[in-house]
Amino acid sequence: MRLDVSTSRSGPMFDGRARAAANAYVNRLERNLAEEGLNILREEMRAVFRNPTGYYESRCVVADGRTIWDSGVVYGPWLAGVGSRNFPVTRFKGYDHWIKTRHRLNERKVGIGERLLRRYTGRM
């Protein structure tokens, strides 16, 4: 007796559509997280800065679609409290706007990822 089991491969898992959808999901998730992080950062800056001019906030942007940075503003490390002129050189210890942003974004990232994933699972 002989039993021949043969299968055929077709569909998104085999023709590359699933991989393309997964890559598109990761790219979009990184972009969404960076944009959400920038919004949180701006909220934190508005909450902690005592005499804001708006310049530093305007220089904080999403670069390359997934990185939040302050465009190299020279006094950025001083505001964040990691500059060479912070405590103990001066009394100013810096603000914790970057740290709070990281914590708040970490709390939200799973929900953002799950909501976004629903859009992409149908393509896989």
Rank of each mutant, 00 (worst) to 15 (best):
V73D: 12
G111H: 12
W98F: 13
N106D: 14
G65H: 09
K109N: 04
R17E: 02
L38K: 09
G113A: 09
N32D: 15
S8L: 02
T67D: 11
R115E: 12
R42P: 07
A22N: 05
N51S: 15
G76I: 03
R42E: 14
I68P: 07
R104A: 14
I40D: 13
V110P: 00
A22T: 04
R108L: 04
A21S: 13
L79G: 03
R123G: 01
G76M: 07
K93G: 06
M13N: 07
E107P: 00
D4P: 00
M45D: 07
G16E: 03
L116E: 08
N106T: 14
G76T: 10
S10F: 00
A22E: 01
A21H: 08
N106W: 06
K100C: 05
L3V: 13
R66G: 09
G111K: 06
E35H: 11
N27K: 13
M13F: 08
D70C: 09
Y25A: 06
G81I: 14
A24Y: 05
P52T: 08
Y75C: 08
A24D: 15
R9D: 07
A22Y: 02
I40F: 08
R85S: 09
V62Q: 02
L33G: 01
E43K: 11
R102V: 10
A80D: 02
N23M: 13
A34Y: 04
P12V: 02
R50V: 15
L38G: 10
V89K: 14
L79S: 08
S10A: 11
M45H: 09
T53C: 05
Y55S: 05
T90G: 08
G37C: 10
G54A: 15
V82A: 14
S71K: 13
N27S: 08
H97Q: 06
A24W: 04
I112Q: 09
Y95S: 12
F87E: 03
M124E: 01
D4L: 12
L38H: 11
G72W: 03
G83P: 12
K93E: 08
S8P: 00
P52I: 10
R123W: 02
E114C: 04
L79V: 07
W78P: 03
P88I: 15
A18G: 11
S8I: 14
V48I: 07
D96T: 12
G54F: 14
P12R: 01
V73P: 05
W98L: 14
V61M: 10
S10E: 12
R108E: 12
G122H: 06
R123D: 03
R118K: 04
M45N: 14
A22C: 09
R9M: 15
A20I: 01
R19E: 09
D4M: 00
G37S: 10
W98R: 06
A20T: 05
T101P: 01
H103R: 13
N106P: 02
L79D: 05
R102C: 02
D64E: 15
R91L: 11
K93I: 07
L117C: 02
F92Y: 15
H103N: 13
K109G: 02
G81Q: 10
V73C: 03
G72P: 06
A21M: 05
F92I: 10
R17W: 04
G72I: 10
A47T: 11
L117S: 07
G113V: 05
S71N: 12
R119W: 08
P52W: 11
A18H: 06
R42K: 15
E36W: 00
I68C: 13
